[in-house]
């Protein structure tokens, strides 16, 4: 590969001198290897390993499916800056998903689907790519199609607000791995909520069209937020964002999902899993 010749400038000339080193957010410096490499995954005394695993799976599936949806925006966002921002959110959630699925698999290996003898597929991928729709534990909110930018903003706002509130509590969870995942996630989710909150306000007060779209989109996601759990703190934050934006909470009753997924999930998974399933013995 050819050398890149650049001026070896005095570090005072280069704002990137300190930036380009050891920064996990930079693509060319990012470590994409085993998410839990070197981490002690022993389940602490007094915690039911299966319960912990299914809990992590639920949290991981939420992140994975929303990440899958958000990455559909790639090359389709309203402008390049937003394309990059949405990809950042999707990448963060994908990172959370990997950690949580790996945690689930380590805590209770019996949850990992069986693959042909000798398959090199790692547990996180077996969980992501070789489970059927009914085995996914995510909330319906994250599997709904993206809709327009306003609907996506509303959904990120609701999701990030609930998840941030939850992750703040999980930073004192007895399981050290989950605690660490939560601590990392809190920073990310704060940013996601901030991104969505700012756009929510912008669209609410921007034009008549943006306001109409925001309200319509929010009505669709609002009815699904209860699946994320009871959380007064999250509700309070959402109330504040809506009030600041001058948007009334949509007058919609919770959708009764009967604990089942929507029709959208199996199609989403069909796309997500197609290559992996064609090559159960493949290495990537």
């Amino acid at each position: 590969m050819p050398e890149i010749h650049t001026h070896e400038a005095d570090e005072h000339d280069s704002a990137y001198a300190g930036l380009l080193v050891n920064d996990a957010h930079w693509a060319f410096g990012t470590d994409f290897e085993d998410p839990l490499a070197g981490v002690d995954t022993t389940v602490p005394e007094g915690i039911d390993a299966h319960e912990l695993a299914t809990y992590c799976l639920r949290l991981g599936d939420d992140a994975l499916i929303l990440s899958q949806r958000l990455s559909e925006w790639c090359s389709r966002a309203p402008d390049l800056e937003e394309d990059i921002a949405l990809a950042n959110v999707a990448l963060d959630l994908l990172g959370q998903a990997r950690l949580l699925l790996a945690r689930a698999a380590a805590a209770d290996p019996s949850l990992v689907p069986a693959l042909p003898e000798g398959s090199p597929v790692p547990p996180e991928d077996a969980l992501a790519f070789f489970r059927d729709d009914r085995e996914f534990r995510n909330a319906c909110l994250v599997e709904l199609p993206n809709g327009d930018f306003a609907e996506t903003v509303g959904r990120i706002l609701v999701f990030a607000t609930y998840r941030l509130s939850l992750f703040q509590r999980l930073t004192s969870h007895p399981d050290a791995v989950l605690r660490a995942v939560a601590a990392k996630g809190v920073k990310e989710l704060t940013y996601h909520r901030d991104f969505a909150g700012r756009w929510f306000l912008t669209l609410a007060r921007g034009s008549d069209e943006s306001r109409r779209r925001l309200e319509a989109g929010l009505a669709r996601t609002w009815a699904y937020r209860h699946e994320l759990g009871e959380d007064d703190e999250a509700e309070l934050v959402l109330e504040q964002v809506l009030a600041t934006s001058g948007i009334a909470a949509p007058d919609v009753r919770p959708i009764s999902t009967g604990g089942r997924h929507t029709e959208h999930l199996s199609r989403l998974l069909a796309e997500m899993q197609v290559v992996a399933r064609q090559h159960p013995m493949g290495v990537w």
Binding site: A87, L94, A97, P122, D125, F129, V275
Partner: peptide, 19 residues
């Protein structure tokens, strides 16, 4: 990106296309 066959590859590809 939507069909990447492993989560690691998905992250790499998404980061790349974002670049």
């Amino acid at each position: 990106i939507g069909r990447a066959p492993s989560l690691r590859r998905k992250a790499i590809l998404l980061a790349k296309v974002q670049d």
